[in-house]
Amino acid sequence: MCYDLAFASTIESVYQYLPDLKDMGPFDFHFEPTFHKVGQAYPKWPVVVNTNGAVKLMKFEWGVIANYMKTPEEIKKGRKWMVNARSEKVLDTKAYWSRIRRTRCLVPATGFFEHREIPGWKNKVPYYIHLKNREIFFIAGLYTYSHLPNPETGELPGTFTLLTRDANDLMSRIHNGGDNAGRMPLILPVEYEKEWLNPTLSDEGIQRILNYSLPSDEMEYWTVNSVRKAKPDDEGVIEKVEYAGLPAL
């Protein structure tokens, strides 16, 4: 799955990639660049949504709070599983994700992290992955507003999840272990970004986009130090690190 993201750019760059953004100028929206955030910490993250025909940049919490979570205790127990959503479940009427398939969002990122299992090695090897020809890319997401207000502000926070799909060839070799091996974020091509936000998109259109798989040759990757250890949030997080004896992919 995808639990680790980077957005190491300025928020103004999102407006450069998505000129349809309205109503909220880049200097009215503050978000500090980050080289690593983990989903289960439920950080606030910029997301792009279409509300009443206007494409807007909002700041939502990563990790959906579903309406069946009635108490803070239920949220604490269940929210950790709501950071990612399998794309195969979006149109499954038995799945929660089908209920919110009409509230779709784009999640901007400059890169993400995944871990590779090496036979005989004690620890998995972390990789940083990004796109070769785009500083920023967008991951398909779903969002909903929490039904429980923020105790400090009284507002109902927006919450979102990232969609994942079967991995392409490259990612299947990197993300090769664990219960969710062989998954990758559903990174969208330019021609699908605006369409994903279209509120009138049919289920057939949703399925067509869910079927998209980013080609391996559009991705660049290298090994880094562990992102599971506390460290400064700076370029050192994505710095290339050589692992002696690491087998080739």
Score class of each variant (00 low, 15 high):
Glu193Cys: 11
Met24Lys: 15
His147Met: 02
Val48Ala: 10
Trp81Cys: 03
Arg99Ala: 10
Lys76Tyr: 01
Asp23Ala: 12
Ile238Ser: 15
Asp20Tyr: 07
Ile11Val: 15
Phe29Val: 13
Phe137Asn: 05
Thr223Val: 09
Ser213Thr: 12
Lys194Met: 07
Gln207Phe: 02
Pro72Phe: 08
Asn198Ser: 09
Phe113Glu: 08
Glu204Phe: 04
Pro33Trp: 06
Thr93Pro: 01
Lys37Phe: 03
Gly205Lys: 11
Ala95Ser: 15
Phe7Asp: 01
Ala181Arg: 12
Lys94Ser: 14
Arg134Gly: 00
Trp62Gly: 01
Pro19Lys: 11
Arg86Lys: 13
Leu156Lys: 10
Tyr42His: 14
Glu88Lys: 07
Lys240Asp: 10
His115Asn: 10
Arg228Gly: 11
Arg99Ser: 13
Val107Arg: 00
Leu156Met: 09
Ala181Glu: 08
Leu142Asn: 07
Thr71Tyr: 03
Val107Asp: 12
Lys240Gly: 04
Val55Glu: 05
Glu193Lys: 13
Leu106His: 00
Thr200Lys: 13
Ile238Thr: 15
Tyr192Arg: 11
Tyr212Ser: 00
Tyr42Asn: 13
Val64Lys: 13
Thr103Gln: 13
Val190Pro: 06
Glu12Tyr: 10
Lys122Phe: 00
Asn168Arg: 03
Phe35Arg: 09
Thr10Tyr: 11
Leu5Thr: 13
Gly53Asp: 06
Lys56His: 07
Leu142Tyr: 06
Asp217Arg: 07
Asn133Met: 01
Phe60Gln: 06
Gly236Thr: 08
Ala66Glu: 09
Val237Arg: 14
Val125Gln: 06
Tyr17Ser: 14
Gly111Lys: 01
Gly158His: 04
Asp20Ala: 12
Glu117Tyr: 03
His147Ile: 01
Gln207His: 10
Tyr192Pro: 04
Leu91Ser: 05
Glu220Gly: 08
Lys132Asp: 02
Leu246Arg: 12
Phe60Ser: 08
Glu88Pro: 05
Asn198Leu: 02
Ala167Lys: 04
Cys105Gln: 06
Lys44Asn: 09
Thr93Met: 04
Glu218Asp: 14
Thr223Leu: 08
Arg86Gln: 10
Ile139Glu: 14
Ala66Arg: 10
Leu186His: 13
Val107Ile: 15
Cys105Pro: 03
Ala95Val: 02
Arg104Ile: 00
Met69Gly: 03
Leu18Lys: 14
Gly63Pro: 09
Asn211Gly: 12
Glu61Gly: 08
Ser213Arg: 11
Ser98Pro: 01
His175Lys: 10
Arg183Ile: 03
Val224Asn: 08
Glu218Arg: 15
Gly120Val: 01
Gln16Phe: 09
Pro108Tyr: 00
Arg86Asn: 14
Ser9Leu: 02
Leu156Tyr: 11
Leu148Gly: 01
Tyr192Ser: 11
Lys70Gln: 11
Met24Cys: 14
Tyr212Lys: 06
Asn198Phe: 03
Arg101Tyr: 02
Ala54Ile: 00
Asn168Gly: 06
Tyr68His: 12
Glu152Asn: 07
His36Val: 01
Gly154Phe: 02
His36Pro: 11
Leu142Thr: 04
Asp23Asn: 15
Tyr68Leu: 05
Ile11Cys: 14
Asp233Tyr: 08
Tyr145Met: 06
Leu163Lys: 04
Ala8Arg: 12
Asn168Phe: 04
Lys44Cys: 03
Gly25Pro: 15
Gly177Thr: 02
Gly120Tyr: 01
